[in-house]
Nucleic acid binder design. Structure first.
Lengths: 176, 176
DNA sequence: TCGGGCCATGTTACAGTGTATCAGCCGCAC
DNA sequence: GTGCGGCTGATACACTGTAACATGGCCCGA
């Protein structure tokens, strides 16, 4: 996974070990840095809570539930309630820093600098649990044409595909 | 809504009153008849519970939650637990008689005789709560091409669009 | 400086969604 | 009859999400 991301995010690694995803400090770091800059530009507060939630999600590289996030952030005297996580996620989602995966009730960090209106396609691998997002202009225009013909005015689009990613397919083929 | 359904379901009516959807006996009837036939063909049991769940969903014409369905089926001495509804919905979903709307955690009856592999687009109106499903071959082929390029093997696709349907848009324009 | 408004967060409670598990029933094949 | 598998009932529980209220910090105008 991620090997086929249309827009790579700087360092070339794959999160597709047999164990699923691993925490990646570099992903988390670049994500928070980008978010910090973006919030500053927009005059919004990038609070520690929001930063930490984003860092956890970004480090994971696969969809995480709000309660999982809360759990990861808690410990060592700190207790983060799921409500707080939800609020932070609301904020991050509004700012396009995090995306919600409806089919999983989970969240992933957005690693693309796509425009506001862009509709994304999420590719979720059933085998490794990894996820990738990509823009697909051809799909988008075809969909827009279909909607226009139907007289429907869209405000948001959800496009999630489940299946098997290239890496897993390859591995399965090799291993039998 | 439904005015633009690509494949009509027999009688020409719209479920878009100002009050949202109404129960439609004819929708329910045709849906259960079709389901009965289909189950017979496939050698599956179309039990009373499954029939009733389908009838409730079909009569509604908009996404219904499992607990809503259970509530509607209960009363007058009969009590249907949500678990039973879920099981029936699992069955109906597997048979393609009902679709799950991920973004709403709700279910709608399928009124089309589309093939097994067809991927559907769901149009959900924020104003009237109505929903329509349509096949969109152009979208599908564009998506397939994109996935193939990414090396991703899809097993299921979710395509849900929120917005305003033609009827609501027209009404809003008229009423100011 | 004081007060008020706004925002972010904490806290509790609760509503809504979904699954695991066990038990009973029924039809059917052996 | 006996066993088996599929369907349903029932309870309990896990997971997901929101409402409501309280607190503390910050800025801003009086």
């Amino acid at each position: 996974m991620r090997a086929y991301a249309q827009q790579d995010h700087g360092h070339d690694h794959h999160h597709d070990g047999a164990d699923g995803r691993h925490g990646c400090g570099r992903c988390a770091e670049s994500a928070t840095e980008r978010a910090e800059r973006l919030c500053q530009e927009r005059g919004l507060q990038f609070t520690p809570l929001r930063r930490d939630v984003l860092a956890v999600v970004a480090a994971e590289g696969r969809p995480l539930g709000a309660y999982d996030i809360a759990e990861r952030m808690s410990g060592q005297g700190r207790r983060v309630a799921a409500v707080s996580v939800y609020r932070a996620l609301d904020f991050l989602t509004e700012q396009g820093l995090v995306h919600r995966i409806s089919s999983r009730n989970a969240f992933v960090s957005c690693e693309h600098d796509h425009g506001d209106g862009a509709s994304l396609v999420f590719l979720i691998c059933r085998s490794c649990g990894g996820i990738d997002e990509m823009t697909a202009p051809a799909v988008e225009s075809a969909l827009d044409a279909t909607l226009a013909q139907a007289g429907f005015t869209p405000t948001s689009r959800i496009l999630e595909v489940e299946g098997e990613c290239g890496s897993c397919r390859e591995r399965r083929r090799r291993e039998g």
